[in-house]
Design a protein around this nucleic acid. Sequence first.
DNA 1: GATTAAACGAAACGATCCGTTTCTATGTGA
DNA 2: TCACATAGAAACGGATCGTTTCGTTTAATC
Lengths: 212, 212
Amino acid sequence: MARKPAVPETTPAPEAIPSSSKPRRASIGARRDPRAEAAILEAARTLLAEKGYSGFSIDEVARRAGAGKPTIYRWWPTRVDLFIDVYSQEKIATLVPPNTGALADDLQAYTHALWAFWRETASGRTFRALIAESQTSALALSALRDKFLPERLKDVRLIFDRGAARGEIWADDVEALLTLYIGFNWVRLLTDRIEDDPQGIAAVVRLLACVR
Amino acid sequence: MARKPAVPETTPAPEAIPSSSKPRRASIGARRDPRAEAAILEAARTLLAEKGYSGFSIDEVARRAGAGKPTIYRWWPTRVDLFIDVYSQEKIATLVPPNTGALADDLQAYTHALWAFWRETASGRTFRALIAESQTSALALSALRDKFLPERLKDVRLIFDRGAARGEIWADDVEALLTLYIGFNWVRLLTDRIEDDPQGIAAVVRLLACVR
DNA sequence: GATTAAACGAAACGATCCGTTTCTATGTGA
DNA sequence: TCACATAGAAACGGATCGTTTCGTTTAATC
């Protein structure tokens, strides 16, 4: 869906391909080549950063990575698997869950950092692509829901669990609060409204953190 | 993205095309033909119901509707425009906002009805396609965010406004509550978890309706 | 040392879909 | 009467899909 249109698109300047035509990366034997893996992930990352979900294609990733399509399909059976690996590769050092002692402050800080991470790396576009692609098949959706999300939600769950341990919220509410918090972030990301917005975040965080 | 694969897919039984080969629907003059419009919307609706976001193509809609592709592109410049019209066509009589006098009850009833509407018509798959397609271009996203959503949110906003008028919630919180509520529904829909789930809904509704 | 097995990239395959263009036919409305 | 907008059919060039074939490379095994 959403292929590249057939419009001439103003002759995109062939970039004067530097004659440093890459030497073909031959097999290193009967095992996965980490150089090929890295090149593919990097090509996918930059392609997503540049073009977003549309404009992303396995053909183009293969071209940029100097890899063969069979190599890609061998290790990433679906696009979602590739998106998950790309997302997981980004440094998320800034996303260590804060522990200020107050749930509201933790959520505010974490959300701020998460949105900045989405904005300033390829991850925002990658995650949007991941969700969109997950709507194309049950298999893809299962990879998102059962493999990716549980792992990624650990940090947020920790924040809420700490709040429950401090008595700020009820432990029985953690699951529902988690869903609400995730939904908030998704709807903002998917509608491209993850600009720096302390007030908008604070308004929501206050509702989530002050429930009794 | 996510084209139909080239696999033989077990010979999908040509369905023994009933020889009632439709008579070509000629122009009715220099104006839009409501029969063509209806046929296209109906074809798009059933195609989405059957195949979901993947498997949906303008070519196939044109085939099923007995319409020309130029006719489709003339009236629906993007797929999102078509999805929006398909969604808007579904009967939503069951979605009149309830007015029980209690915010929690209103939200519970409305959410229950909304999920049933998504499950039991093509609308769930249509809306999922709408969101996914909106990730492919800024133009498509703008159609969703600025044209479709505000109209569709009127009912929910009314429910929260009534709650605020009764003093159940603060008027200043309506906007944030609305975002949280939308996010909750989106994340459940996009992860295919809109099965009948009174407890899950109640847990979230209680959090949204009891805030002060 | 020879053989097996798996990975690599290149190239090409048939199929599908894109969005547009060209064509003829049809009826409206000025 | 006649300009004009519509309708559908057909075909276009291009992009992408996921797969297959092929020759090459190297590790592991015999």
